[in-house]
């Protein structure tokens, strides 16, 4: 399933535990993200094995989005699901932000 807007793309691969977020995500509230990320949450529940969330090409995201992502991390945590977030070293905000999400779920892996 793929959602594409002029600003961002959310691509959940069929039958594969992999989703990719790209573009610019600056929605107005955590509630707005709750719904934007609903396909990922469903996909996470419907697939098996270590789940990869690739945000390497997400150039901007606001703090409401971090809250949204943290809810996905918590979903993986409550299912003891392996979760890998793929980040990019060339997108500065990602370098700064993602490390702390591991405190939420020690099994979370952050990869470049």
């Amino acid at each position: 399933m793929k959602i594409q807007t002029t600003e961002y793309t959310i691509d959940c691969r069929d039958a594969e535990p992999y989703a990719k977020l790209s573009g610019v995500l600056r929605l107005a509230s955590p509630a707005a993200y709750e719904h934007a990320f609903a396909p990922i949450r469903k996909h996470l529940a419907a697939t098996l094995g270590a789940y990869t969330l690739d945000v390497a090409q997400l150039t901007f995201m606001n703090s409401s989005g971090i809250t949204g992502l943290s809810r996905l991390v918590m979903q993986a945590r409550s299912d003891s699901r392996e979760l890998v977030i793929v980040v990019s070293d060339t997108v500065p905000w990602q370098r700064k932000t993602f490390g702390s999400l591991q405190k939420l779920y020690p099994k979370l892996q952050i990869r470049n």
Partner: peptide
């Protein structure tokens, strides 16, 4: 309702 508007991107699932 705490929602925002847009003339070029509208998405009810994002409260726009």
């Amino acid at each position: 309702y705490n929602i925002v508007f847009s003339s070029d991107i509208a998405d009810l699932d994002q409260a726009i």
